[in-house]
C-alpha cells in the first residue's frame, strides 16, 4: 500500500462514520451546524494524528497485558493538551463543543486506530493513517452539519438564505438521527462497493 492510499482510504473506503460506524456520539451531538461539525472533526484529527504517532513510537516497548490502559493515558494526555490549546485560542468553539472535547478520549476511532494500525506500523505511516481517518471524520461531520444547518436554520456556514427559522427539529436531537440515517442510505447506495 503506497503512502497516498494510506491517506485516502479513510475518506471513502474506510470512512469512520459511514463504513466503520465509529465515533457516533460526537457525530450526532456536535453537528448542529457545518462550522461546529468541522471544528469537532478538526479537534479529533489533532488528537488522532498525535496519538497515532506517539503510540506507534512506544508500541514495541509496551507490555501486551497493559497496552490498553497505556494507550488510553497517551490519548487522554493529548486530549488535555487540546483542551488547553482550544481554551487559549478558540474559547468560543471550546464552549460550544463543551463536553465532547474531553469525550474524545473515549472516541472509538482514536483507540481503534491505535489498536488496528498504529501499534504495528511506522511513525510516518501512522501519522498518514491518522490524517486520512481524521479527514474522513471531519468530512462526514461537515456534511452532516451542513445538511442539518440548511434544513434546520436555513443557513450555510452561518450565512442565512431564508428569513425566519428553518425546521427546528433538524437542529435538535431527532434531526441528528434522521439525517445520519438518510446520509448512510445515500452512502450505501452510491459510494460503497
Amino acid at each position: 500500500m503506497n503512502k497516498l492510499q494510506l491517506f485516502t482510504k479513510g475518506i471513502v473506503k474506510e470512512n469512520p462514520i459511514f463504513v466503520l460506524l465509529l465515533g457516533l456520539c460526537p457525530t450526532l451531538a456536535t453537528t448542529t451546524s457545518a462550522i461546529n461539525g468541522m471544528s469537532m472533526g478538526l479537534a479529533t484529527l489533532f488528537v488522532l494524528v498525535l496519538s497515532n504517532m506517539a503510540i506507534s513510537a512506544i508500541a514495541p516497548r509496551v507490555p501486551d497485558k497493559v497496552h490498553i490502559p497505556v494507550y488510553i493515558v497517551v490519548i487522554a494526555t493529548f486530549v488535555t493538551v487540546l483542551q488547553f490549546v482550544m481554551q487559549a485560542w478558540t474559547p468560543v468553539i471550546y464552549k460550544t463543543l463543551g463536553l465532547f472535547i474531553p469525550l474524545i478520549v473515549v472516541n472509538c476511532i482514536v483507540l481503534g486506530r491505535a489498536e488496528a494500525f498504529a501499534n504495528q506500523n511506522g511513525i510516518i505511516d501512522s501519522a498518514l493513517d491518522g490524517l486520512g481517518q481524521g479527514m474522513g471524520f471531519t468530512f462526514s461531520l461537515t456534511v452532516l452539519g451542513l445538511v442539518r444547518e440548511v434544513l434546520g436554520s436555513g443557513s450555510v456556514f452561518g450565512l442565512k438564505f431564508i428569513s425566519g427559522d428553518g425546521i427546528l427539529a433538524f437542529v435538535m436531537a431527532p434531526g441528528a438521527f434522521l439525517c445520519l440515517g438518510y446520509l448512510m442510505v445515500l452512502f450505501n447506495k452510491f459510494l460503497k462497493k
Binding site: 435538535m172 436531537a173 448512510m184
Partner: peptide, 22 residues
C-alpha cells in the same frame, strides 16, 4: 429496502423515538 438495511433504518427509527421524547 436494501440500502436501508441494518444501521441506517435503525438510525431513522431512533430519530422517530427521539421525536416522541421531545
Amino acid at each position: 429496502p436494501k440500502a436501508f438495511r441494518g444501521v441506517p433504518i435503525a438510525f431513522i427509527t431512533v430519530g422517530i423515538l427521539a421525536l416522541a421524547f421531545m
